[in-house]
Design a protein around this nucleic acid. Structure first.
Lengths: 208, 208
DNA sequence: TTTTGTGAAACGCTTCACAGCT
DNA sequence: AGCTGTGAAGCGTTTCACAAAA
Protein backbone atom coordinates (compact mmCIF):
# COMPACT_ATOMS: atom_id res chain seq x y z
CA UNK A 1 0.00 0.00 0.00
CA UNK A 2 0.82 3.71 -0.42
CA UNK A 3 3.11 3.26 -3.43
CA UNK A 4 2.98 6.32 -5.62
CA UNK A 5 -0.36 8.09 -5.74
CA UNK A 6 -1.05 10.40 -8.65
CA UNK A 7 -2.25 13.97 -8.28
CA UNK A 8 -5.43 13.00 -10.09
CA UNK A 9 -6.11 10.34 -7.51
CA UNK A 10 -5.60 12.73 -4.58
CA UNK A 11 -7.89 15.29 -6.20
CA UNK A 12 -10.58 12.64 -6.48
CA UNK A 13 -10.06 11.56 -2.86
CA UNK A 14 -11.08 15.12 -1.91
CA UNK A 15 -14.27 14.80 -3.91
CA UNK A 16 -15.07 11.42 -2.38
CA UNK A 17 -14.55 12.84 1.10
CA UNK A 18 -16.91 15.75 0.45
CA UNK A 19 -19.60 13.35 -0.70
CA UNK A 20 -19.02 11.05 2.28
CA UNK A 21 -19.54 14.01 4.59
CA UNK A 22 -22.93 14.52 2.96
CA UNK A 23 -23.81 10.84 3.13
CA UNK A 24 -22.92 10.64 6.80
CA UNK A 25 -24.95 13.75 7.55
CA UNK A 26 -27.88 12.03 5.84
CA UNK A 27 -27.45 8.89 7.92
CA UNK A 28 -26.32 6.67 5.03
CA UNK A 29 -24.41 3.67 6.38
CA UNK A 30 -22.59 2.18 3.38
CA UNK A 31 -21.83 3.21 -0.16
CA UNK A 32 -20.62 1.21 -3.17
CA UNK A 33 -18.09 2.21 -5.79
CA UNK A 34 -20.99 2.12 -8.24
CA UNK A 35 -22.89 4.84 -6.36
CA UNK A 36 -19.76 6.95 -6.03
CA UNK A 37 -19.10 6.46 -9.73
CA UNK A 38 -22.57 7.66 -10.65
CA UNK A 39 -22.20 10.76 -8.46
CA UNK A 40 -18.95 11.82 -10.12
CA UNK A 41 -19.44 10.37 -13.61
CA UNK A 42 -16.48 8.07 -13.18
CA UNK A 43 -15.84 4.38 -13.73
CA UNK A 44 -16.45 2.31 -10.58
CA UNK A 45 -13.17 0.42 -11.05
CA UNK A 46 -11.29 3.71 -10.96
CA UNK A 47 -12.76 4.54 -7.58
CA UNK A 48 -11.84 1.12 -6.23
CA UNK A 49 -8.30 1.55 -7.59
CA UNK A 50 -8.03 5.00 -6.00
CA UNK A 51 -9.03 3.64 -2.61
CA UNK A 52 -7.05 0.39 -2.87
CA UNK A 53 -3.81 2.40 -2.74
CA UNK A 54 -4.43 2.76 0.99
CA UNK A 55 -5.30 -0.79 1.96
CA UNK A 56 -8.47 -2.86 1.86
CA UNK A 57 -10.97 -0.19 2.77
CA UNK A 58 -14.10 -1.91 1.51
CA UNK A 59 -16.14 -4.97 2.32
CA UNK A 60 -16.92 -7.41 -0.51
CA UNK A 61 -20.60 -7.74 -1.21
CA UNK A 62 -21.35 -4.66 0.90
CA UNK A 63 -19.32 -1.68 -0.24
CA UNK A 64 -17.61 0.91 1.94
CA UNK A 65 -18.75 1.81 5.45
CA UNK A 66 -19.36 5.56 5.17
CA UNK A 67 -18.16 6.57 8.64
CA UNK A 68 -15.01 4.45 8.41
CA UNK A 69 -14.06 5.54 4.93
CA UNK A 70 -14.68 9.17 5.80
CA UNK A 71 -12.36 9.00 8.79
CA UNK A 72 -9.73 7.13 6.82
CA UNK A 73 -9.82 9.67 3.99
CA UNK A 74 -9.46 12.55 6.42
CA UNK A 75 -6.40 10.77 7.81
CA UNK A 76 -4.96 10.07 4.36
CA UNK A 77 -5.45 13.68 3.27
CA UNK A 78 -3.88 14.93 6.49
CA UNK A 79 -7.07 16.66 7.61
CA UNK A 80 -7.07 15.09 11.07
CA UNK A 81 -5.20 18.06 12.51
CA UNK A 82 -5.31 21.84 12.19
CA UNK A 83 -3.81 23.33 9.06
CA UNK A 84 -2.87 26.96 9.41
CA UNK A 85 -2.97 28.98 6.23
CA UNK A 86 -1.48 32.38 5.38
CA UNK A 87 -2.79 34.50 2.56
CA UNK A 88 -0.26 36.71 0.83
CA UNK A 89 -1.78 39.74 -0.85
CA UNK A 90 -4.53 41.72 0.86
CA UNK A 91 -6.28 42.72 -2.37
CA UNK A 92 -9.81 41.86 -3.43
CA UNK A 93 -9.00 38.22 -4.02
CA UNK A 94 -6.93 37.87 -0.84
CA UNK A 95 -9.79 39.25 1.23
CA UNK A 96 -12.33 37.04 -0.49
CA UNK A 97 -10.24 33.96 0.25
CA UNK A 98 -9.47 35.03 3.82
CA UNK A 99 -13.16 35.30 4.64
CA UNK A 100 -14.28 32.27 2.62
CA UNK A 101 -16.31 30.12 5.03
CA UNK A 102 -15.66 26.87 3.14
CA UNK A 103 -12.14 26.58 4.55
CA UNK A 104 -13.04 26.46 8.19
CA UNK A 105 -15.30 23.45 7.65
CA UNK A 106 -12.49 21.30 6.36
CA UNK A 107 -9.96 22.00 9.08
CA UNK A 108 -8.18 24.83 7.31
CA UNK A 109 -7.73 27.97 9.32
CA UNK A 110 -6.66 31.26 7.76
CA UNK A 111 -4.56 32.74 10.54
CA UNK A 112 -2.88 35.70 8.83
CA UNK A 113 -2.89 38.00 5.82
CA UNK A 114 0.29 39.58 4.49
CA UNK A 115 0.90 42.63 2.34
CA UNK A 116 3.69 45.08 1.64
CA UNK A 117 1.60 48.27 1.61
CA UNK A 118 2.13 50.21 4.89
CA UNK A 119 -1.46 51.50 4.76
CA UNK A 120 -2.84 47.98 4.92
CA UNK A 121 -0.47 46.52 7.49
CA UNK A 122 -2.06 46.53 10.95
CA UNK A 123 -5.63 46.64 9.66
CA UNK A 124 -7.96 43.64 9.44
CA UNK A 125 -10.18 41.90 6.90
CA UNK A 126 -13.95 42.06 7.36
CA UNK A 127 -13.71 38.64 8.96
CA UNK A 128 -11.12 39.98 11.43
CA UNK A 129 -7.88 38.51 10.02
CA UNK A 130 -4.93 40.76 10.82
CA UNK A 131 -2.75 42.01 7.96
CA UNK A 132 0.96 41.65 8.67
CA UNK A 133 3.97 43.11 6.91
CA UNK A 134 5.29 40.62 4.38
CA UNK A 135 8.75 41.16 5.91
CA UNK A 136 7.47 39.49 9.08
CA UNK A 137 6.37 36.37 7.24
CA UNK A 138 9.10 34.10 8.55
CA UNK A 139 8.59 35.13 12.16
CA UNK A 140 4.77 34.99 12.06
CA UNK A 141 4.82 31.69 10.14
CA UNK A 142 6.94 30.13 12.88
CA UNK A 143 4.84 31.54 15.70
CA UNK A 144 1.48 30.61 14.14
CA UNK A 145 2.54 27.24 12.76
CA UNK A 146 1.65 28.18 9.19
CA UNK A 147 2.17 25.27 6.79
CA UNK A 148 0.31 26.47 3.68
CA UNK A 149 0.54 29.81 1.88
CA UNK A 150 -1.98 31.13 -0.63
CA UNK A 151 -0.41 33.59 -3.05
CA UNK A 152 -2.84 36.23 -4.35
CA UNK A 153 -0.59 39.07 -5.52
CA UNK A 154 -0.18 40.75 -8.94
CA UNK A 155 1.87 38.68 -11.39
CA UNK A 156 4.76 41.16 -11.34
CA UNK A 157 5.61 40.40 -7.72
CA UNK A 158 4.58 36.73 -7.66
CA UNK A 159 8.04 35.17 -8.01
CA UNK A 160 9.55 37.42 -5.30
CA UNK A 161 6.68 36.61 -2.98
CA UNK A 162 7.06 32.91 -3.69
CA UNK A 163 10.76 33.14 -2.86
CA UNK A 164 9.91 34.84 0.43
CA UNK A 165 7.37 32.14 1.27
CA UNK A 166 9.84 29.38 0.49
CA UNK A 167 12.49 31.13 2.56
CA UNK A 168 10.04 31.19 5.48
CA UNK A 169 10.08 27.39 5.41
CA UNK A 170 6.58 26.91 4.02
CA UNK A 171 6.45 23.79 1.82
CA UNK A 172 2.99 24.03 0.26
CA UNK A 173 1.74 26.91 -1.90
CA UNK A 174 -1.49 27.63 -3.70
CA UNK A 175 -0.93 30.32 -6.31
CA UNK A 176 -3.53 32.51 -8.02
CA UNK A 177 -1.14 34.72 -9.99
CA UNK A 178 -0.74 34.10 -13.71
CA UNK A 179 2.66 33.13 -15.12
CA UNK A 180 5.38 30.55 -14.56
CA UNK A 181 6.83 30.29 -11.08
CA UNK A 182 9.85 28.34 -9.83
CA UNK A 183 10.07 26.54 -6.51
CA UNK A 184 12.61 24.05 -5.10
CA UNK A 185 11.80 20.40 -5.64
CA UNK A 186 10.83 19.78 -2.02
CA UNK A 187 8.15 22.48 -2.20
CA UNK A 188 4.72 21.80 -3.67
CA UNK A 189 3.18 24.54 -5.79
CA UNK A 190 -0.36 24.34 -7.11
CA UNK A 191 -1.61 27.07 -9.40
CA UNK A 192 -5.09 28.26 -10.26
CA UNK A 193 -4.92 30.22 -13.49
CA UNK A 194 -8.24 31.88 -14.20
CA UNK A 195 -7.10 33.32 -17.52
CA UNK A 196 -6.07 29.90 -18.78
CA UNK A 197 -9.47 28.53 -17.71
CA UNK A 198 -11.34 31.31 -19.51
CA UNK A 199 -9.25 30.92 -22.64
CA UNK A 200 -9.96 27.22 -22.64
CA UNK A 201 -13.67 28.09 -22.58
CA UNK A 202 -13.12 30.57 -25.38
CA UNK A 203 -11.43 27.85 -27.44
CA UNK A 204 -14.45 25.63 -26.90
CA UNK A 205 -16.78 28.39 -28.10
CA UNK A 206 -14.57 29.23 -31.08
CA UNK A 207 -14.47 25.73 -32.48
CA UNK A 208 -18.28 25.30 -32.38
CA UNK B 1 -5.19 19.67 -38.94
CA UNK B 2 -7.57 20.46 -36.05
CA UNK B 3 -8.38 16.82 -35.26
CA UNK B 4 -9.14 16.40 -31.59
CA UNK B 5 -7.19 18.67 -29.30
CA UNK B 6 -6.92 17.69 -25.64
CA UNK B 7 -7.78 20.00 -22.79
CA UNK B 8 -4.18 19.81 -21.67
CA UNK B 9 -3.03 21.08 -25.03
CA UNK B 10 -5.43 24.03 -25.01
CA UNK B 11 -4.34 24.95 -21.51
CA UNK B 12 -0.74 25.03 -22.69
CA UNK B 13 -1.66 27.13 -25.73
CA UNK B 14 -2.83 29.77 -23.26
CA UNK B 15 0.53 29.69 -21.53
CA UNK B 16 2.42 29.92 -24.82
CA UNK B 17 0.32 32.90 -25.85
CA UNK B 18 1.04 34.74 -22.62
CA UNK B 19 4.78 34.24 -23.12
CA UNK B 20 4.57 35.30 -26.77
CA UNK B 21 2.91 38.55 -25.65
CA UNK B 22 5.92 39.17 -23.45
CA UNK B 23 8.39 38.26 -26.18
CA UNK B 24 6.72 40.56 -28.69
CA UNK B 25 6.68 43.41 -26.16
CA UNK B 26 10.42 42.85 -25.77
CA UNK B 27 11.00 42.95 -29.51
CA UNK B 28 11.95 39.30 -29.87
CA UNK B 29 11.44 38.19 -33.49
CA UNK B 30 11.51 34.39 -33.38
CA UNK B 31 11.37 31.68 -30.76
CA UNK B 32 12.20 27.96 -30.89
CA UNK B 33 10.34 25.09 -29.26
CA UNK B 34 13.49 24.63 -27.17
CA UNK B 35 13.20 28.11 -25.65
CA UNK B 36 9.50 27.66 -25.00
CA UNK B 37 10.23 24.28 -23.43
CA UNK B 38 12.79 25.80 -21.06
CA UNK B 39 10.35 28.53 -19.99
CA UNK B 40 7.63 26.07 -19.06
CA UNK B 41 9.70 23.04 -18.05
CA UNK B 42 8.26 20.96 -20.86
CA UNK B 43 9.68 18.76 -23.59
CA UNK B 44 10.30 20.65 -26.86
CA UNK B 45 8.63 17.90 -28.90
CA UNK B 46 5.45 18.35 -26.88
CA UNK B 47 5.30 22.02 -27.79
CA UNK B 48 5.82 21.22 -31.46
CA UNK B 49 3.06 18.59 -31.27
CA UNK B 50 0.72 21.05 -29.57
CA UNK B 51 1.24 23.62 -32.31
CA UNK B 52 1.25 21.13 -35.19
CA UNK B 53 -2.43 20.43 -34.55
CA UNK B 54 -3.15 23.73 -36.26
CA UNK B 55 -0.99 23.50 -39.36
CA UNK B 56 2.65 24.17 -40.10
CA UNK B 57 3.16 27.18 -37.89
CA UNK B 58 6.94 27.07 -37.67
CA UNK B 59 9.90 27.47 -40.02
CA UNK B 60 12.51 24.69 -40.10
CA UNK B 61 15.91 25.86 -39.11
CA UNK B 62 14.46 29.07 -37.66
CA UNK B 63 11.68 28.40 -35.17
CA UNK B 64 8.40 30.27 -34.82
CA UNK B 65 7.91 33.91 -35.86
CA UNK B 66 6.69 35.50 -32.63
CA UNK B 67 4.23 37.98 -34.14
CA UNK B 68 2.70 35.38 -36.47
CA UNK B 69 2.37 32.67 -33.86
CA UNK B 70 0.88 35.10 -31.38
CA UNK B 71 -1.80 36.18 -33.84
CA UNK B 72 -2.51 32.61 -34.85
CA UNK B 73 -2.86 31.50 -31.22
CA UNK B 74 -5.26 34.35 -30.48
CA UNK B 75 -7.31 33.16 -33.44
CA UNK B 76 -7.18 29.52 -32.39
CA UNK B 77 -8.23 30.38 -28.84
CA UNK B 78 -11.04 32.59 -30.14
CA UNK B 79 -9.54 35.72 -28.61
CA UNK B 80 -9.72 37.76 -31.82
CA UNK B 81 -13.11 39.14 -30.83
CA UNK B 82 -14.78 40.48 -27.71
CA UNK B 83 -15.86 37.94 -25.14
CA UNK B 84 -18.52 39.21 -22.80
CA UNK B 85 -18.55 37.62 -19.37
CA UNK B 86 -21.21 37.60 -16.67
CA UNK B 87 -20.40 36.92 -13.06
CA UNK B 88 -23.12 35.25 -11.03
CA UNK B 89 -22.87 35.93 -7.32
CA UNK B 90 -22.05 39.40 -6.03
CA UNK B 91 -20.20 38.19 -2.95
CA UNK B 92 -16.57 38.75 -2.04
CA UNK B 93 -15.29 36.42 -4.74
CA UNK B 94 -17.69 37.71 -7.40
CA UNK B 95 -16.55 41.27 -6.75
CA UNK B 96 -12.91 40.30 -6.78
CA UNK B 97 -13.34 38.59 -10.15
CA UNK B 98 -15.46 41.40 -11.58
CA UNK B 99 -12.76 43.96 -10.86
CA UNK B 100 -9.80 41.73 -11.74
CA UNK B 101 -7.72 43.74 -14.24
CA UNK B 102 -6.15 40.64 -15.83
CA UNK B 103 -9.32 39.88 -17.80
CA UNK B 104 -9.53 43.09 -19.78
CA UNK B 105 -6.02 42.55 -21.16
CA UNK B 106 -6.94 39.31 -22.84
CA UNK B 107 -10.11 40.45 -24.56
CA UNK B 108 -12.48 39.34 -21.82
CA UNK B 109 -14.95 41.95 -20.68
CA UNK B 110 -17.02 41.54 -17.51
CA UNK B 111 -20.25 43.25 -18.54
CA UNK B 112 -22.61 42.28 -15.72
CA UNK B 113 -22.92 40.91 -12.21
CA UNK B 114 -25.97 38.97 -11.07
CA UNK B 115 -27.38 38.24 -7.64
CA UNK B 116 -30.69 37.31 -6.09
CA UNK B 117 -30.54 39.61 -3.06
CA UNK B 118 -32.81 42.67 -3.58
CA UNK B 119 -30.42 44.84 -1.55
CA UNK B 120 -27.61 44.22 -4.01
CA UNK B 121 -29.54 44.45 -7.26
CA UNK B 122 -29.18 47.90 -8.79
CA UNK B 123 -25.92 48.71 -7.02
CA UNK B 124 -22.46 48.47 -8.57
CA UNK B 125 -19.10 46.89 -7.87
CA UNK B 126 -16.17 49.16 -6.99
CA UNK B 127 -15.14 48.91 -10.63
CA UNK B 128 -18.58 50.08 -11.70
CA UNK B 129 -20.16 46.81 -12.90
CA UNK B 130 -23.94 46.90 -12.42
CA UNK B 131 -25.58 44.12 -10.39
CA UNK B 132 -28.67 42.67 -12.07
CA UNK B 133 -31.40 40.43 -10.72
CA UNK B 134 -30.60 36.82 -11.54
CA UNK B 135 -34.13 36.52 -12.92
CA UNK B 136 -33.12 38.92 -15.70
CA UNK B 137 -30.18 36.77 -16.76
CA UNK B 138 -31.69 35.52 -20.01
CA UNK B 139 -32.74 38.98 -21.15
CA UNK B 140 -29.49 40.72 -20.19
CA UNK B 141 -27.39 37.88 -21.63
CA UNK B 142 -29.13 38.30 -24.99
CA UNK B 143 -28.85 42.07 -24.95
CA UNK B 144 -25.20 42.17 -23.90
CA UNK B 145 -24.03 39.22 -25.96
CA UNK B 146 -22.78 37.28 -22.94
CA UNK B 147 -21.13 34.01 -23.95
CA UNK B 148 -19.34 33.03 -20.73
CA UNK B 149 -20.66 32.87 -17.17
CA UNK B 150 -18.56 32.71 -14.03
CA UNK B 151 -20.39 31.06 -11.15
CA UNK B 152 -19.34 32.33 -7.73
CA UNK B 153 -22.25 31.46 -5.46
CA UNK B 154 -22.48 29.30 -2.31
CA UNK B 155 -22.51 25.57 -3.05
CA UNK B 156 -26.13 25.19 -1.95
CA UNK B 157 -27.45 27.27 -4.83
CA UNK B 158 -24.83 26.32 -7.42
CA UNK B 159 -26.85 23.73 -9.35
CA UNK B 160 -29.91 25.98 -9.57
CA UNK B 161 -27.77 28.86 -10.77
CA UNK B 162 -26.07 26.63 -13.33
CA UNK B 163 -29.47 25.54 -14.62
CA UNK B 164 -30.51 29.18 -14.98
CA UNK B 165 -27.30 29.98 -16.85
CA UNK B 166 -27.77 27.04 -19.21
CA UNK B 167 -31.40 28.04 -19.77
CA UNK B 168 -30.19 31.53 -20.75
CA UNK B 169 -28.35 29.92 -23.64
CA UNK B 170 -24.83 30.37 -22.26
CA UNK B 171 -22.61 27.49 -23.38
CA UNK B 172 -19.43 28.08 -21.36
CA UNK B 173 -19.22 28.20 -17.55
CA UNK B 174 -16.40 28.69 -15.10
CA UNK B 175 -17.49 27.48 -11.68
CA UNK B 176 -15.92 28.34 -8.31
CA UNK B 177 -18.45 26.53 -6.11
CA UNK B 178 -17.49 23.22 -4.57
CA UNK B 179 -19.44 20.07 -5.42
CA UNK B 180 -20.57 18.11 -8.48
CA UNK B 181 -22.61 19.98 -11.04
CA UNK B 182 -24.49 18.68 -14.07
CA UNK B 183 -24.67 20.41 -17.44
CA UNK B 184 -25.96 19.21 -20.85
CA UNK B 185 -23.35 17.72 -23.15
CA UNK B 186 -23.21 20.75 -25.43
CA UNK B 187 -22.27 23.03 -22.53
CA UNK B 188 -18.69 23.29 -21.30
CA UNK B 189 -18.18 23.52 -17.54
CA UNK B 190 -14.79 24.18 -15.99
CA UNK B 191 -14.47 24.13 -12.23
CA UNK B 192 -11.94 25.67 -9.90
CA UNK B 193 -12.15 23.87 -6.58
CA UNK B 194 -10.05 25.62 -3.98
CA UNK B 195 -10.81 23.07 -1.28
CA UNK B 196 -9.63 20.21 -3.49
CA UNK B 197 -6.43 22.16 -4.20
CA UNK B 198 -5.80 22.81 -0.51
CA UNK B 199 -6.49 19.19 0.40
CA UNK B 200 -4.07 18.06 -2.26
CA UNK B 201 -1.45 20.27 -0.59
CA UNK B 202 -2.40 18.82 2.79
CA UNK B 203 -1.88 15.31 1.40
CA UNK B 204 1.56 16.33 0.21
CA UNK B 205 2.44 17.65 3.67
CA UNK B 206 0.98 14.61 5.43
CA UNK B 207 3.02 12.04 3.52
CA UNK B 208 6.30 13.88 4.09
C1' DT C 1 -25.92 -12.61 -5.16
C1' DT C 2 -23.48 -8.51 -4.52
C1' DT C 3 -19.44 -5.97 -4.59
C1' DT C 4 -14.52 -5.50 -3.74
C1' DG C 5 -9.60 -5.83 -5.25
C1' DT C 6 -6.67 -6.43 -9.11
C1' DG C 7 -3.97 -8.39 -13.17
C1' DA C 8 -4.31 -7.54 -18.07
C1' DA C 9 -5.89 -4.85 -21.92
C1' DA C 10 -6.93 -0.52 -23.78
C1' DC C 11 -6.27 4.14 -24.19
C1' DG C 12 -4.16 8.68 -24.34
C1' DC C 13 -0.47 11.63 -23.61
C1' DT C 14 4.51 12.45 -23.74
C1' DT C 15 9.11 11.59 -25.31
C1' DC C 16 12.31 9.82 -28.64
C1' DA C 17 14.51 9.93 -32.80
C1' DC C 18 15.02 11.24 -37.27
C1' DA C 19 13.57 12.66 -42.03
C1' DG C 20 12.90 16.88 -44.29
C1' DC C 21 13.17 21.70 -44.97
C1' DT C 22 15.70 26.28 -44.63
C1' DA D 1 24.04 23.50 -39.08
C1' DG D 2 19.60 24.35 -36.97
C1' DC D 3 14.98 23.45 -36.05
C1' DT D 4 10.39 21.78 -37.28
C1' DG D 5 6.98 18.07 -38.00
C1' DT D 6 5.91 13.43 -37.02
C1' DG D 7 5.76 8.09 -36.82
C1' DA D 8 7.03 4.96 -33.34
C1' DA D 9 8.16 3.84 -28.64
C1' DG D 10 7.43 4.59 -23.90
C1' DC D 11 4.81 5.47 -20.00
C1' DG D 12 1.05 6.48 -16.93
C1' DT D 13 -3.87 6.28 -16.26
C1' DT D 14 -8.33 4.20 -16.99
C1' DT D 15 -11.29 0.41 -18.10
C1' DC D 16 -12.26 -4.44 -18.47
C1' DA D 17 -13.14 -8.71 -16.64
C1' DC D 18 -13.03 -11.96 -13.18
C1' DA D 19 -11.49 -14.40 -8.93
C1' DA D 20 -12.30 -13.91 -4.08
C1' DA D 21 -14.99 -12.72 -0.16
C1' DA D 22 -19.27 -11.67 2.45
Amino acid sequence: MTDQVSEQTTNRLSLYLRFLNELEANGVRTVSSKVLAAEFDLNAALIRKDLSHFGDLGVRGVGYVVADLRLRLRQILGLDRRLNVAIIGAGNLGFALADYPGFRQDGFRVVALFDSLPDKVGTRSRGGILIHDIRDLKRVAKREGITIAVVAVPSGSAQIVVNTVVDAGIKALLNFSPGSLRVPRDVKLKSVDVTVSLESLSFFLAKG
